[in-house]
Design a protein around this nucleic acid. Structure first.
Length: 346
DNA sequence: AAAGCGGGGAT
DNA sequence: ATCCCAGCTTT
């Protein structure tokens, strides 16, 4: 048996039952693919169910507000996916008369849809011969064929896409694509795969040459920068609180948070006055404050470590852009903020 | 070509 | 700690 039939045979015996595999509806398949970008199935599954439940059609999604879409996305990370998802839904409904793009080339025009996702939707929903290359595929191909080209280099991306295209089963592209990804996820795992029970072991170059643990090759890691965040939790006598939208570029765009002042270093409790209040409505004179967390909460993103302090500030009367404390949970926020809201005794 | 963008799981 | 996850967009 050749490579593709071995994969498909293995898949038929080992595949997981997942809801997006039970449908050919391109909207549901698209939804699942966006959710699963850089996200493990276990983490994405409850979000998929929630989106299907709350937005059963692309029209429902298009009619929603971005804030409500972000709220449902809360906790999943990479929030540009949610913003792009919503924008693409509006594009399909308003510009394409609600007809979902039905081929690789047109799928690529959707915001948040790149080569992998366009190939996945085109093959799964329309059985188009378009080879997917995700993290699983990179791993399987680099090991089986013993390829040490860096998978995140420009040349590597082209080389693996070309190889994947040459291998796909043109008679059943949907099954083949599913099979190679599932094989990478369950059998050809990143760490300590059980190669002695692998159906492809006889042809696997990495196994013969003892290169399983070093393939695939990936270029360097991103450098982590440290930042020092000071959130001002400003509460007044009528249980109002300041909460505002992050409109800047960068992390957590369009999510909500308490007023934030960055500092150059981690401040001691008595150094509160060193914060730069220039762009806030507060002056350091007219309120009492305390520090919620004695030691910094370190919120780790892939490229930033956020050393965070929550300063609790009591004020007589906040301006009328403040919101009710009871309504805080209606707003989409980062995990850093939602954890605080869940734990703080308001 | 490189950097930016989250959060959690596995080891 | 470190790497990885059904990657894409911006610089």
């Amino acid at each position: 048996m050749n490579f593709k039939f071995q994969l498909i045979y293995w898949y038929s015996n080992n595949k997981r039952q997942l809801p997006w595999r039970e449908t050919k509806n391109p909207y549901y398949i698209w939804l699942s693919e966006i959710i699963l970008q850089q996200t493990q199935v276990k983490q994405g599954l409850p979000y998929y169910d929630a989106f299907v439940d709350q937005y059963p059609t692309i029209f429902d999604l298009a009619e929603a507000t971005e804030t409500s879409v972000l709220k449902l996305w809360q906790g999943l990370g990479y929030y540009s996916r949610a913003r792009n998802l919503h924008a693409a839904a509006k594009y399909v409904v308003n510009e394409l008369n609600g007809e979902f793009p039905n081929n690789y080339k047109d799928l690529l025009k959707l915001k948040g849809v790149g080569d992998y996702t366009a190939s996945a939707i085109a093959s799964f929903a329309y059985n188009e011969v378009a080879a997917v290359v995700d993290g699983n595929v990179y791993r399987v191909l680099s090991r089986y064929f013993g390829i040490d080209t860096a998978i995140n280099s420009t040349i590597g991306i082209k080389e693996f896409k070309s190889l994947a295209t040459s291998l796909i089963d043109k008679a059943q592209p949907a099954i083949y694509n599913q099979a190679i990804m599932e094989f990478g996820a369950l059998q050809c795992k990143p760490k300590n795969p059980d190669c002695h029970i692998c159906p492809l072991k006889d042809g696997c170059v990495a196994l013969q040459k003892n290169l399983v643990s070093v393939l695939p090759v990936k270029l360097k890691k991103t450098k982590v920068t440290n930042k020092y965040y000071n959130f001002l939790v400003c509460i007044d006598n009528s249980k109002q609180i300041l909460f505002e939208k992050r409109t800047n570029k960068g992390i957590w765009q369009n999510l909500y948070q308490f007023p934030l002042i960055e500092s150059e270093k981690s401040l001691a409790p008595e150094e509160f006055h060193l914060l730069n209040f220039e762009n806030t409505i507060l002056s350091t004179e007219d309120f009492d404050y305390s520090l919620y967390n004695e030691t910094d909460i370190i919120h780790k993103l892939s490229h930033q470590h956020l050393h965070t302090k929550f300063w609790i500030i009591d004020i007589d009367q906040l301006p009328n852009n403040a919101i009710a404390i009871a309504s805080l949970t209606n707003y989409p926020t980062s995990v850093l903020i939602s954890d605080f809201i869940d734990n703080f005794n308001f």
